[in-house]
Amino acid sequence: MTSAIPHPVHFGRIAPTLPVADMDRAIAFYTQVLGFTKAFENGNPVGFVILKKDNAELHLTLDKQHKAVPRNVAHLLVHDAAALYQHLQQHNVRVIKALRDADFGMRCFVFADPDGNRIDVGENR
């Protein structure tokens, strides 16, 4: 592996884009369960949405044939993984990997949104 060559371009935010089969269902989940707010939408019917909460930004794109993949598609860093884990359990959200203190120094778990998109949650310990 070669070392990276510095360049003058400053990077701004980068946000994951998740495909969803049902935009209304996805928006309801991310706003009502996770507390995001809709910052932007495009299309009629809506085919693209930007959601924001605190420092997190998430993009949703409509794909009516979306099939979930068996890997994590986004990582969410939080300040209290246990509290979010409990909140998601109270809302009957599907947990893929239970809350644990990992040997790499994080408290973490994985959940799936209504479209099966796997979100890896981590808290630095």
Rank of each mutant, 00 (worst) to 15 (best):
V78T: 09
V33D: 08
V110P: 01
Q65L: 15
R107S: 09
D54I: 01
P6C: 04
L76D: 03
Q90I: 02
H66T: 15
K38P: 02
G47H: 14
P16A: 03
L99H: 07
N42F: 13
E57N: 04
N92F: 06
R71Q: 10
T17S: 13
A102G: 08
L34V: 04
L60Q: 04
M106F: 15
N117F: 00
C108W: 07
V73E: 13
D115I: 06
P6F: 11
Y85T: 04
L60N: 02
D63T: 12
L99T: 09
I27S: 08
I14K: 01
L99Y: 14
Q86K: 15
A28W: 09
K38E: 14
G47Q: 14
R107M: 03
V93E: 05
A74N: 02
D22W: 07
D24H: 13
H91R: 12
A102F: 00
L88R: 14
V110C: 08
E123T: 03
A56H: 05
D103G: 13
M106E: 15
L62P: 10
N44Y: 04
G35V: 02
G47E: 15
N55C: 12
D63S: 13
A81I: 01
F109Q: 07
G122Q: 06
A81F: 03
P8N: 13
V93H: 09
H66V: 15
A82I: 05
H66P: 14
A112H: 03
F36E: 03
D113S: 05
L58I: 00
R25T: 11
E41L: 09
E57H: 01
F109E: 00
P16M: 02
R118H: 14
R100G: 10
F29L: 08
D101S: 14
R94K: 06
L88M: 10
L77Q: 08
G43A: 06
F48Y: 15
P6E: 05
D103A: 12
R25G: 07
P6V: 01
N44W: 01
N92H: 11
K38A: 03
A26G: 05
R118L: 11
M106V: 14
R100Q: 15
R118W: 15
T37V: 11
Y30V: 02
A4G: 11
L60F: 04
G43Y: 03
Y30W: 14
H7D: 10
L77M: 04
R118P: 04
A82G: 10
R107H: 13
L18E: 07
A98W: 08
A4D: 00
A102S: 14
N92W: 00
R100S: 13
K64Y: 06
D80I: 05
R25W: 01
P19I: 00
D63K: 13
L77C: 00
F40L: 12
C108F: 05
F40Q: 12
V73G: 01
R13E: 00
D24K: 11
R13V: 00
P70R: 06
H87M: 07
Q90V: 01
N42D: 12
Y85L: 09
A98M: 13
F109A: 05
H87D: 10
L84S: 07
F40E: 12
D22I: 00
A68L: 13
P45T: 11
G12Q: 08
D120K: 06
L60E: 03
H7Q: 13
Y85G: 01
G122I: 03
H91Q: 11
Q65K: 15
R71L: 10
I27H: 08
N55M: 10
L84N: 09
